[in-house]
């Protein structure tokens, strides 16, 4: 499969008064054409920043300082802000976390969907509104033509997230980046949104990057999962292999902390002791070493590289000296 997006060695720094602090430390990720990649990790591990950096939407004082991000053969990190602007919406679509605040409260829903079509693709307004109605229908909103005139506050959370998806899809992007799009929603609606995105992905053959901290949710959507910890990819694997044979101790910890139906009632869920390192205060060796139960001497001195897991399926890679079998650097 051809790589649509190929990120190599991406680093992102926060400019602090005390000097730069690294939040993303050499991330490698690829997304193939038509593939969906799940990016899993806890808050602050750099998963959102990585995706925002691709399209030049990093907040003030946070900058991508190194690496390459090829998108359809062109390095996104080397593009001018104007080139990136043209790319946003038309080539790379976004869905954001909070549908309650990600829609302009004073603008009708239809106008917001048509916005990108009118100003980005130069479509005439009536045609854009027509297309907006089609998009609303596509994302499963009943009587879409009436909803075009609704204000965001007149819609429920799930409806609003559907509108967000319609906006993300409006430019027919090749890559859709969904940044925790279900975190703010009820569980039943989460599943509906996941199903919707999977359907749309299959229908349009786009690639999807789904950022989440919910492993269970994404199992039904992603082809591949990348597990991020403290700004690095610690494990990257086809989804079924990951659940069958989690290799990095952090991934194992994540999976072990998912509740299952066979758990004894009232039993405590296992958790991973400790907290991730703060940006700029990374331990010298493996970033997970201070919390790892399998830590060895080498873990505290050198950084493990992402390497194929010995004896596992092709495409399964992990960054661990102890469990991945090889890959000491």
């Amino acid at each position: 499969m051809n790589a649509l997006l190929d990120i190599r060695g991406l680093t992102i720094d926060i400019d602090r008064d005390s000097g730069p602090a690294r939040v993303v430390d050499g991330i490698d990720l690829t997304v193939a054409e038509g593939e969906s990649l799940g990016i899993v990790g806890e808050s602050g591990c750099g998963k959102s920043l990585t995706m925002l950096s691709l399209v030049g939407l990093l907040p003030n004082r946070i900058r991508a300082t190194g690496g390459v991000a090829d998108f359809a053969g062109k390095d996104l990190l080397a593009m001018s802000s104007e080139e990136l602007r043209r790319l946003r919406g038309s080539q790379i679509g976004f869905i954001f976390q909070d549908p309650m605040t990600s829609l302009n409260p004073v603008m009708r829903v239809g106008a917001q969907i048509a916005e990108a079509l009118v100003y980005q693709s130069g479509m005439a307004k009536p045609a854009a509104m027509e297309r907006a109605a089609e998009l609303l229908e596509l994302v499963g909103i009943p009587s879409p033509r009436d909803r075009l005139m609704a204000y965001p506050h007149e819609l429920s959370g799930g409806m609003r997230q559907r509108v967000m998806i319609a906006i993300g899809l409006a430019g027919s992007p090749r890559l859709l980046i969904a940044d925790e799009p279900t975190t703010a929603l009820d569980v039943t609606i989460q599943a509906q949104i996941v199903d919707l995105v999977r359907d749309l992905k299959d229908r349009f053959g786009m690639s999807v990057v789904w950022i989440t901290h919910d492993l269970a949710l994404i199992a039904g959507l992603a082809d591949r999962i990348a597990v991020l910890y403290a700004g690095t990819v610690v494990e990257d694997s086809p989804v079924d292999v990951l659940f069958e044979r989690p290799t990095h101790p952090y991934t194992r910890g994540l999976l072990a902390s998912l509740p299952t139906l066979t758990d004894k009632p009232m039993s405590r869920l296992p958790s991973i002791a400790g907290t991730p390192p703060e940006p700029g205060r990374r331990p010298p060796g493996c970033p997970f070493a201070p919390r790892c139960a399998l830590v060895t001497a080498v873990c505290t001195t050198s950084v493990p590289r992402l390497a194929p897991v010995a004896g596992s399926a092709p495409g399964h890679r992990a960054a661990c000296f102890v469990t991945a079998g090889e890959g000491a650097s």
Binding site: V55, L57, R85, R86, L87, R88, G89, S90, G93, F94, F96, Q97, D98, T101, S102, L103, N104, P105, E115, A116, Y119, Q120, M164, I167, A170, G171
Partner: peptide, 16 residues
């Protein structure tokens, strides 16, 4: 605000 970031992600110009 998030809706301004969302508008940026749509590739709208600063003026709009």
């Amino acid at each position: 605000r998030p809706y301004v970031t969302a508008a940026r992600a749509l590739g709208l110009t600063n003026r709009i």
